[in-house]
Design a protein around this nucleic acid. Structure first.
Lengths: 212, 212
DNA sequence: AAAGAATATGACCACATGGTCACATATCGA
DNA sequence: TCGATATGTGACCATGTGGTCATATTCTTT
């Protein structure tokens, strides 16, 4: 957690620091990201930085937590409705919300993309501990829930399916980021929806217990 | 390409350098990987290193090329039989060969894993240019081929499916690496086969033109 | 106005980085 | 044996890193 000094800062200043940090941690891994760079971008001296944060990890975890909280905020409204939906509908919603998140907060999405590639184990652990797996076990829960409701075949390997959905989800995000990179979500909503649907169609048209 | 000096080295020495480099580039990104570390591990002075390689990128590209060539070597035998197989069989073979590769060359596999996370664009481009996309467009070709043979429904989005297979492939590798990490391929062959099959079962039981 | 606490600041530290270069040592052909 | 050519080698360079700290400034309280 940042020191009190940081929270006493005027919002304009602290926001600038946050922005600079988000940009830097989106650009590079935890190790490769540079405090000097962040200070330069936020227009604060190095001495001040260490007045606000204990060390690099302190800042890193804080920034990640902000992004995670934002994502949870956007997703929570959707998850409330989950109980009334079938698994394919749930997954579809999750995917689309993911795309929406990436377009509403491209900076945070890039941050998440970078985090998924992070190789500094201790930094990763610190972030996860501080609040986020979110989608880690979510898919598994959804799948088992769907099984117990008889929505999908019991013989389907839950772990395999959840792994599939997880990797697919990140693939979709990566694809969207590459194709529309930051802008054009509203304009291309139809195309995006169609793409997601065609993906899910492949996956789900074989695992329903019932036939078409 | 390494300088002549490198190729004139006795095999024991050059192999030691290669080994040290593979280890270092598996551990860290291109930027984070350290020449000093490699020299230390290979027991050669820094001056000698630059007698062998133009710079860091030169070594990086060379090491990656070695791994790619090894992978191609293992895969090429399989690809020859492709024309006689259906798409699911092809994909299954590809997945299993991938797992086999990871177990025969865990060092190279780790290298590939690291490369897929590489964020230095110019380093990435240099590697790709020097010889490898391999599986980049392979899936797309296989899919279109299967379509023209009427194996899968023409309405299936080729790009979506190839994306799915690609991300699935990396998910399998990641999962295997995590679960059996380096050893135990032969002992767990049944379990691995079963896992791959259950994944592919999910995907393919919905995209065949014919019904069960 | 004075005293005391909270902040701001940049020079500085030890260390690591990729890369160079002058010089030492082998190797080889004549 | 001598000269030339190819190799080996580590001190050195400029630059960057995360982090510290003594000092200066500002704010708050009396």
């Amino acid at each position: 957690m940042p020191k009190d000094t940081f929270f006493n800062l005027p919002d304009v200043k602290s926001n600038l620091i946050i922005l600079a940090a988000v940009e830097e941690f989106s650009r590079a891994s935890f190790t490769a990201a540079s405090i000097n760079q962040i200070c330069r971008r936020a227009n604060i001296p190095k001495g001040s930085f260490y007045q606000y944060f204990r060390d690099k990890l302190d800042l890193y975890v804080y920034i990640m937590k902000l992004a995670i909280e934002e994502k949870i905020r956007l997703f929570s409204s959707v998850i409330d409705d989950f109980s009334t939906l079938t698994l394919p509908e749930q997954v579809r919603l999750l995917f689309l919300k993911g795309v929406e998140f990436a377009n509403r907060h491209p900076d945070y999405a890039a941050l998440g993309e970078q985090f998924s590639k992070e190789s500094d184990e201790s930094a990763k652990a610190a972030v996860i501990k501080e609040g986020g797996r979110l989608s880690e076990s979510l898919f598994l829960q959804m799948i088992d829930n769907a099984k117990s409701k008889g929505e999908i075949d019991n013989r389907v390997d839950s772990l395999a399916l959840s792994l599939l959905l997880k990797s697919l989800n990140s693939a979709v995000n990566e694809y969207m980021l590459e194709k529309f990179g930051g802008a054009g979500y509203e304009e291309n909503r139809e195309e995006i929806d169609g793409f997601v649907d065609s993906l899910l169609n492949i996956v789900f048209n074989g695992i329903r217990s019932g036939k078409d």
